[in-house]
C-alpha cells in the first residue's frame, strides 16, 4: 500500500489522542495546547528541511548547532535595536551559509554526510560556547511575540510554520525542483542521465536546510524575552525520528512532508502525554530511540520479505 506508513502513523497518533481523551481529558485545554503547538512550531520547520535532506539520501545532524548559532546571532542583532524585517532575513542567511558549508563538503568532495555534519555540529557548537560562554542574550521588548500580544504572537508563529509546511509540501509535489530532490535520492546516476545534476541538487538541499533552520531559530527567539545559547539541543534527533517514523525512507527517494508532519505531531504529544499519564518525562528520549528503531526495523523486515 502506497501510504501505509503515513496512515499507520496517523492511526498511532489518533490512538494516543483517544487514550488521552479517556484517561487524561485535562490534556485538551486550549491554552496548554496552544503553547504546545507554538513550542513545537520551530521543530516542524526543521523537520521539513530534514525530510528534504533524507529524501535526497543524506542526513544532517548539525542542525542543533546551526539552530543555536542562528538564535544567538538573531538575538544579538535584535538587541542592537535592528528591526525584525532585517533580523529575520539575516538569521535565514546565516543558516543558509552554515548549510552551504555542509553542502560543499558533501556534494563537492563526496564526503559522507553523517561524518561531515558530525564534525560541523561540534565545531559550531564549541565555537558558539567559546564566543558566548553560555551567556543569555537579553532581547528588547518589541521582539517577543513580534511586539504583538502573546496569543497573537503564538498564532503568528503557528501560522508561519503551517504555511511553510503547506507551501513546501505543494512544491515538493508540484514543482520541478522538488521532484529533482526525489529523483536524486532515488538514483543519482539515473538522475544524471536524465539531465538532473545530482551534486547541485544535493548542495542546494543542504543550503535550503540551513535557511529553514535560520527561520526556525527566529520562530524560537520570539517566544521568550531572552535567547538561550543552548536552544535547539536535541532537535536533530527529534526531527530525524519524526521524519523516519513518518515514512521517509533513510535510503532516499521515498516519503513526503505529510508523513513528517504526522511524525512531529506524534513525538510532540509524547512529552505532555507522559505527564498526563503519570509517567516520568525522563522516558522521552528512550521512547524516541525505540520509535526510531521500530520504524527502521519495520522497513528492514518489509524489504527483507520483499526481496526473498
Amino acid at each position: 500500500m502506497k501510504y501505509f506508513r503515513e496512515i499507520s502513523v496517523a492511526l498511532a497518533l489518533l490512538a494516543l489522542l483517544i487514550a488521552l481523551a479517556i484517561v487524561a481529558p485535562a490534556f485538551y485545554q486550549p491554552q496548554p495546547l496552544l503553547s504546545l503547538a507554538t513550542r513545537e512550531a520551530p521543530t516542524l520547520i526543521v523537520a521539513c528541511g530534514m525530510a528534504l535532506v533524507i529524501i535526497c539520501r543524506q542526513i544532517d545532524i548539525s542542525v542543533a548547532s546551526q539552530f543555536a548559532i542562528c538564535s544567538v546571532c538573531a538575538g544579538l542583532l535584535a538587541s542592537m535595536k535592528l528591526p525584525l524585517v532585517i533580523v529575520l532575513p539575516a538569521s535565514i542567511c546565516i543558516g543558509a551559509i552554515l548549510g552551504s558549508i555542509n553542502g560543499v563538503l558533501i556534494a563537492g568532495l563526496g564526503l559522507p554526510s553523517i561524518v561531515v555534519t558530525l564534525a560541523t555540529m561540534v565545531t559550531w557548537r564549541e565555537a558558539l560556547r567559546w564566543q558566548r560562554q553560555g551567556e543569555f542574550v537579553n532581547l528588547p521588548d518589541n521582539v517577543q511575540w513580534f511586539g504583538l500580544s502573546q496569543s497573537a504572537g503564538q498564532w503568528t508563529v503557528i501560522a508561519i510554520a503551517i504555511t511553510l509546511l503547506l507551501v513546501l509540501a505543494v512544491c515538493m509535489n508540484r514543482m520541478a525542483a522538488g521532484r529533482f530532490v526525489y529523483a536524486v535520492g532515488s538514483d543519482a546516476e539515473a538522475a544524471r542521465l536524465a539531465g538532473i545534476p545530482p551534486q547541485r541538487v544535493t548542495f542546494l538541499t543542504f543550503a535550503f536546510m540551513g535557511a529553514l533552520v535560520g527561520l526556525a531559530a527566529m520562530m524560537n527567539v520570539v517566544q521568550s524575552p531572552q535567547v538561550d545559547p543552548k536552544s535547539g539541543t536535541g532537535i536533530e534527533l527529534k526531527t530525524i525520528a519524526a521524519v523516519v517514523v513518518g515514512g521517509v525512507a533513510i535510503s532516499g527517494g521515498r516519503g513526503n512532508l505529510w508523513g513528517a508532519f504526522a511524525g512531529i505531531l506524534l513525538l510532540a504529544c509524547i512529552s505532555p502525554a507522559l505527564t498526563h499519564l503519570h509517567i516520568e518525562s525522563y522516558w522521552e528520549k528512550a521512547i524516541q530511540g525505540m520509535i526510531i528503531l521500530l520504524a527502521v526495523v519495520a522497513d528492514g523486515i518489509r524489504t527483507k520479505r520483499g526481496s526473498a
Partner: peptide, 16 residues
Amino acid sequence: IVTLGTYSLFRGLAEA
C-alpha cells in the same frame, strides 16, 4: 541509522 537509534535509546534509558 541503527546506532543513531540506539544512541538515543541507551541515553534515554540511562536518564529514565
